[in-house]
Design a protein around this nucleic acid. Structure first.
Lengths: 220, 220
DNA sequence: ATAATAAGTTAGATTATTCTAACAAAAATA
DNA sequence: TATTTTTGTTAGAATAATCTAACTTATTAT
């Protein structure tokens, strides 16, 4: 199929597109830590393979074929993360780098077995949806903690951009998926929020943090 | 550390040396399905890195450093095979290709966790010893079924050169590790053996097959 | 012992992935 | 709008891993 390297570029385009709607060479370059000319020529290669649409000086976007190929890699990544957490006892902050490697394993049986042992999960340990075998994926409509107002009570549903550091930050404050968060107040000039959860003393969360936490209204 | 490719060559040298005592370019070439000149130049590279001893027109052998590096890859391979069989429900004939890929994963934690979940196993699903964290490995003194005489009763302990096809052959005859085998007779001109085991009708095994089955005397 | 075969080596080319340096276009700013 | 900064592109080179063709050394068989 596609090379290890191509898979990584494809995934990067997918991830960037998911957040920003489009992917430009400069950001791909930063994300992948690969110089722009290299990224540029790889974009042309992926375009030749019909995986992305590339036009000079414009952001690239995935074709339907590219979208599916990327989603299937993401599927392997997220299934792996879930397996590492649920079946092997790793923390959600320890699994990314391992999954990054295992996602390239070529063995449908291997991932089918994981899927089965996990009971066909819909979400990964960070609350992100796991694409199905056809590469279809649905995001439940969450919103950012940022957008909440004092008095709101919400449930922590997912993290965006789950870097290990950020996850360790959340661990240290016992913030995990499912935690019920009550917004006490919001600093208007810097967006810092004071929140309460799990019967702990109030905690202050910077705007940067609140921007990476996805929540849903608490159902009564 | 070493590249994916270098790891594969190193492993091939290790495996060949284990069986034949030495590794020559021609056989490495056949084993890896890579042409001789390519193998040849890689041997020089590995020699420069101090992993093998290379002299023109002579078989290569691993240095202490190379031996350890190779054993640690084999360790990851065999731990993975054990995990796939014991924790994920794969058959011993389904795990080689998957382990071949996962053995290259760079994450001491990942393999340490496998090891722990498996209860620090000493043998893989094919009866081969798993090298320890220092790359030390001990082969229990088995002998080949080939070398047995009529009337011998032995226990199936391990397979050599465990190709999937061979393992499927054994599956079809319900021959597995631990099976107690009684040698009924040996054809002197072609070495075919007639054996009995598991209260089944006598089975005839060719010399090729008997050469790949390792056994130990049955203890009373 | 010589000829034939097998194994090993050298040289040179190819593809994938990366880089740096130089240049061009687009976007932001003054 | 003109200039500066950022982003994107081209050209050319480097390294890793592979190949084929041609040649050499070692082994085997006559």
């Amino acid at each position: 199929m596609h090379s290890y390297t191509e898979e990584n570029y494809l995934k990067a385009v997918f991830n960037l597109s998911a957040i920003k709607g489009e992917a430009n060479v400069n950001e791909l370059s930063r994300l992948l830590e690969i110089k722009m000319p290299t990224v540029n020529s790889m974009m042309k290669r992926l375009a030749e393979k019909g995986l992305i649409v590339y036009e000079s000086y414009k952001p690239v976007r995935l074709t339907a074929k590219g979208e599916k190929a990327a989603a299937l890699i993401i599927r392997k990544h997220r299934l792996t993360e879930m397996f590492l957490v649920e079946k092997m006892g790793f923390g959600w902050d320890e699994v990314h780098d391992i999954a990054e490697q295992i996602e390239h394993v070529q063995s449908p049986d291997f991932f089918a077995k994981m899927d089965e042992l996990l009971g066909f999960p819909k979400l990964d340990p960070h609350g992100s949806p796991i694409p199905d075998k056809n590469g279809k994926m649905e995001w439940t409509e969450y919103h950012k903690l940022n957008e909440c107002k004092p008095g709101d009570t919400v449930v922590f549903k997912a993290v965006i951009h789950s870097s290990d550091d950020f996850l360790k930050f959340l661990n240290a404050r016992q913030l995990r998926l499912g935690t019920v968060i009550k917004v006490k107040s919001v600093e208007s000039f810097d967006g810092t929020m004071t929140v309460e959860y799990s019967k702990r003393p109030p905690e202050m969360l910077s705007q940067l943090v609140c921007d990476r936490i996805l929540v849903a209204p608490k159902k009564k």
